[in-house]
Design a protein around this nucleic acid. Structure first.
Length: 823
RNA sequence: GCGAGAGUGGCGGAAUUGGCAGACGCACCAGACUUAGGAUCUGGCACCGUAAGGUAUAGGAGUUCAAGUCUCCUCUCUCGCACCA
């Protein structure tokens, strides 16, 4: 037999076996408890990177472990295959996005297989396959029918480089999340999904997902941004209606001395008096030029302009000048704010700049504010004053009382406001899912009839990189007849945001081959929800929120029954090297291919699991990889060296073991217990692996002449190999076979620890004097407190510390510690 | 600014319920084997001290017989959000 560990050979051997025997194929089986394990599918960018290796190694440990524990595991993989890079590559290489994408998929699939990941490859999905995206078009049409997909003209975030629209979530620091180009505002006719209809439920369920990291839930809650307040109408002085504001501080209405409107506010022009026209237009132009980038990223100085018009404070009758202000956002609340300079910092600064009046309406307890002496707004709770019949109320109570009063008088209504806005999904790109809609001059927006689906992406398209979407310029695609009236019409040429595909791929995995619909209810009901989802924290808001939204929409359409897609979520940390995220520009990239070539997949997996717990960042270390490789070599050598011994061994007779044999066996079973708990309860694979390393050290240094040594060693080696299987499956399968098993390890159950074997016969007890460690004594496990106490007091190392002082108290923690308190 | 999380040897990290701080690994040092070693094996390795012993978990206070762990304050770092009315 080979004495040298050659990963290339054994990894190839077992990968072929798993592949050909379809070891990891998942079949619905109501007799078994299901376990749906999912890692976020990759974008087929060309090759996998270390982040993928880590993500999928973590997932594979869970998958293989659960399988060995008897679960019916669904562990699928696929490709988030639509998206800009494919199109950009096509432009550069004068190629086609489909060719580029499918070639990348083929290569990356090979890489994943080389890692020995336990996927059911029969369920593989590529979202650019027409068999996938056609069903998404059907879902879109149903959403359209329910009013959940709609069109509106709006200012959108526009990336001039990508020539496409970006969702708010896709704008990072004022730049495009993909290419970092400064984002501009552009007015376009766009498709939206009405995610705001689900804002309340999405928020509510963030309190019912105990298996999610708190920080992700917090981010989602903040993103949804629910706030309670009032909409209040401030009548215009000219009597022509009123201006509606949203406020959460209706307790300060009596202190509102002016109004601030967003420059884009529909009333902005109307309220502007002729003499103010020039100033106002100049201001609006200036704000528009500044654009969103600066309006959101920098602490822009508060600026505004007077419109020349006034509103009246409905409670005080005070004349309030109406300003346009650069810090008021059109897309939050009503785009208009009642300004209370004494109790809002922004309004305070604004009032200072334009010499607007201040009126204190909330006094801090035990203090009196004086407008002349204020240097900043008082935003804390307090007692109302100058507020008519509400004087003397605490501000918290006043919120309620004033809201009721406003509602009664018909001036305002209590409302709930969300920061979350509808999800714009139109993209002016070719490589995406065509939105199945036709525009007819007579019939208007006409959904493509279901029998005409799918709207297939045309292949014969030219990619020049100029002038926006190639689809829009393709007459054969755009020119159609209206399905209703038959006259010439135009096809929608925008495609859907790629986040749409990743919002339901986990459902399609349950029935990837279904030919007559998106989802097979019975299969989806069997597998959903995903028991464990694993991926990067960067998807905390966008992908995870959209996927939750889609799940609820599809539930309401009757496709599925679950409320939430992912029961447990694990967000793994980044892979960094030399203190920085791996990136080509920093030259600190570790290439998985060469890593596998040099050490094998098992070593690559092992190190990425051993170096840090999953949720923390992993600091890559080439020397650390050497260490993992060394460990596998030692495992290999130890097992192979003892094959003869093991071949002669029978079963362990627990009744007649010697003390030394029992000690060895105790180490084995304690390791089984520890590894099991570390994987199952904590996902702390690093400590699980460390425990196996300790066991190896023990086994390596134990050589007994006793009768049952061979039997105990056999049990030990077999256990060690089984415990390693989720982490390093190839070497484990090979060693398992060499240990004489005909049944494959991948069909073998996880070991159970023997409760009798892990009980300590002797325990080490620490003896402290006044909390300081003075001695350690070994006593038999059952020693009672009294004997323990006297043994501690009589200990030679302890005695000197007891001379000349009085023992006041002795604390005994059985099996652990004695603390003698003296004084 | 707000929210969340973190801070432990030269390094990655461990300490699960308040009970031996530093498991396991890396690096380093010494030795063995060797023509050789970037292979393998053995031993050492928080800091100060010859030792007995003392000091150590960002810093400071507190609770406790006992604190890396609990409470309060301060500092630093990371991530997320950021004019949200």
């Amino acid at each position: 037999m080979d004495q040298k560990y050659t990963p290339a050979d054994i990894e190839q051997k077992w990968q072929t076996y798993w592949d050909e025997s379809k070891t990891f194929r998942a079949v619905e089986d109501t007799e078994k408890e299901k376990y749906y394990l999912l890692e976020m599918f990759p974008y087929p960018s060309g090759r996998i990177h270390m982040g993928h290796v880590r993500n999928y190694s973590i997932g594979d440990v869970v998958g293989r472990f659960k399988r060995m524990r008897g679960f019916n595991v669904l562990h699928p993989m696929g490709w988030d295959a639509f998206g800009m890079p494919a199109e950009n590559a096509a432009i550069q290489n004068k190629s086609h996005p489909a060719k580029w994408t499918y070639e990348n998929i083929a290569y990356m699939r090979g890489q994943l297989k080389q890692l020995g990941l336990s996927y059911d490859w029969d369920r593989e999905i590529a979202t650019c396959d027409v068999e996938y995206y056609r069903w998404e078009q059907k879902i879109f049409l149903e959403m359209f029918a329910r009013g959940l997909a709609y069109k509106k003209t709006s200012f959108v975030n526009w990336c001039p480089k990508c020539e496409t629209v970006l969702a708010n979530e896709q704008v990072e620091d004022g730049g495009c999340w993909r290419c970092d180009t400064d984002v501009r505002q552009k007015e376009l006719d766009q498709w939206f999904f009405r995610i705001t209809d689900y804002a309340e439920e999405l928020l509510e369920w963030t309190h019912k997902l105990p298996g999610w990291p708190e920080r992700v839930l917090v981010m989602q809650r903040n993103w949804i941004g629910k706030s309670f307040g009032c909409e209040i109408n401030f009548p215009r002085e000219d009597g022509a209606g009123s201006v509606k504001v949203f406020t959460t501080r209706q307790d300060t209405v009596f202190g509102a001395t002016f109004m601030s409107l967003a420059p884009e506010h529909p009333l902005a022009q109307e309220l502007t008096t002729p003499d103010r026209k020039d100033d106002v237009e100049a201001f609006i132009e200036k704000v528009r030029k500044t654009e969103r980038i600066k309006r959101t990223t920098e602490d822009l100085e508060k600026e505004g302009v007077f419109t020349g018009s006034y509103c009246l404070n409905p409670l005080t009758g005070v004349r309030m000048p109406v300003y346009l202000a650069n810090f008021v956002l059109m897309d939050y609340g009503t785009g208009a704010v009642m300004a209370v300079p004494t109790h809002d910092q922004r309004d305070f600064e604004f009032a200072g700049k334009y010499s607007l009046p201040l009126q204190v309406v909330i006094q801090p307890e035990g203090e009196t504010l004086d407008t002349a002496a204020m240097t900043e707004a008082y935003t804390e709770p307090g007692i109302l004053c100058n507020s008519g019949s509400f004087d003397g109320l605490r501000s918290d109570d006043a919120k309620e009382a004033i809201a009721d009063y406003l509602q009664e008088k018909g001036i305002g209504t209590k409302t709930v406001n969300f920061r979350l806005r509808d999800w714009g999904i139109s993209r002016q790109r070719y490589w995406g899912n065509p939105i199945p809609v036709i525009y007819c001059d007579v019939c208007g927006v006409v959904p493509v009839p279901e029998q005409d689906l799918p709207v297939t992406l045309p292949v014969d398209v030219e990619f020049t990189g100029e002038g926006g979407s190639p689809l829009a310029r393709l007459d054969s695609f755009v020119n159609v007849t209206c399905p209703i009236c038959g006259i010439a019409a135009r096809r929608e040429s925008d495609t859907m945001d790629t986040f749409v595909q990743s919002s339901w791929y986990f459902l399609r995995y349950c029935c990837p081959d279904l030919l007559d619909g998106p989802l097979d209810r019975s299969k989806v009901d069997y597998w959903m929800s995903v028991n464990q989802y694993i991926g990067g924290i960067e998807h905390a808001v966008m992908h995870l929120l959209y996927a939750r939204f889609f799940t609820k929409v599809l539930r309401d359409m009757g496709y599925i029954t679950c409320d939430e897609p992912f029961i447990n979520l694990l967000t793994q940390g980044m892979v960094i090297k030399d203190g920085a995220k791996m990136s080509k520009s920093k030259g600190n990239v570790v290439d998985p291919d060469s890593l596998i070539r040099k050490y094998g997949a098992d070593t690559a997996r092992l190190f990425s699991l051993f170096a840090a717990p999953p949720e923390k960042d992993l600091d890559w270390s080439d020397q650390g990889v050497d260490g993992s490789f060394r460990f596998l070599n030692r495992v290999w050598k130890l097992v192979n060296d003892r094959l003869d011994l093991v071949a002669r061994a029978g079963a362990v007779d627990t009744a007649s073991l010697t003390a030394e044999e029992r000690t060895l066996r105790r180490a084995v079973h304690k390791t089984i217990r520890k590894v099991t708990e570390d994987i199952e309860e904590r996902f702390h694979f690093n400590t699980a692996i460390a425990a196996v390393m300790e066991l190896l050290n023990t086994l390596q240094s134990t050589e007994l002449a006793s009768p049952q040594f061979a039997a105990v060693m056999k049990e030990a080696l077999e256990s060690m190999v089984l415990l390693l299987a989720p982490f390093v499956p190839h070497i484990s399968e090979e060693l398992w076979q060499r240990l004489g098993h005909r049944q494959k390890l991948s069909a073998t159950a996880w070991p159970e620890f023997d409760r009798g074997a892990v009980v300590d016969e002797e325990v080490l007890v620490v003896v402290q004097v006044n909390g300081k460690l003075r001695s350690k004594i070994t006593v038999s496990a059952g020693t009672d407190q009294e004997s323990l106490k006297s043994a501690a007091l009589a200990d030679d190392k302890v005695k000197p510390f007891l001379e000349g002082v009085q023992v006041r108290k002795v604390i005994c923690v059985p099996g652990k510690l004695v603390n003698i308190v003296v004084g």
